[in-house]
Amino acid sequence: MAEGFAKESFSEDWQVESAGIEAHGVNPLAVKVMAEVNIDLSHNKSKLIDTDFLNDCDLVVTLCGDAKDRCPMTPPSVKKLHWPLPDPAQATGTEAEKMVVFRQVREQIKDLVIDLASSLK
């Protein structure tokens, strides 16, 4: 979800990529809630972190739970931010109940990405 908002919010001067320490596939509920705001994630792929790419970044943002602690080390030149959001994939209940959580997290991510993009202009 963050990648989808970032690609819309950041200028073309930025290369926006999303990756994780594990590849689980793109959650279908994330695809659904992003489609509600006209962002298509249906062609996105779950990717593992490329350490060489990571070490060459200007900025790395980690999301959810222990991502901050489990993200590989980067050189001091890489600015790091952590947004301690709940992981919507951990939501329980019916699909409708899970969608509520995905929507809440989507809105939090949207606000954070827009604020970050504004601060970097």
Rank of each mutant, 00 (worst) to 15 (best):
A2S: 10
E3K: 04
E3M: 06
F5P: 02
S9C: 15
D13L: 12
D13E: 13
V16R: 02
E17M: 15
E17Q: 14
S18G: 09
A19W: 00
A19K: 01
I21G: 05
I21N: 07
I21L: 08
A23I: 04
G25A: 04
N27G: 13
P28K: 07
L29S: 08
V31H: 00
K32Y: 07
V33W: 01
V33M: 06
D40L: 12
S42N: 04
K45H: 15
K45C: 07
L48H: 09
D52T: 14
F53V: 10
L54I: 07
D56N: 13
C57N: 02
C57R: 04
C57E: 03
G65R: 08
G65K: 12
A67W: 03
D69W: 14
M73V: 12
S77Q: 13
W83G: 01
P86H: 09
P88V: 03
Q90C: 11
Q90A: 13
Q90T: 14
Q90V: 11
A91D: 04
A91H: 05
T92S: 14
T94L: 06
T94E: 11
E95L: 05
E97T: 14
M99D: 08
V100E: 06
V101M: 08
R106Y: 06
I109W: 03
D111G: 13
D115R: 09
D115P: 02
L116G: 02
S119H: 04
K121V: 11
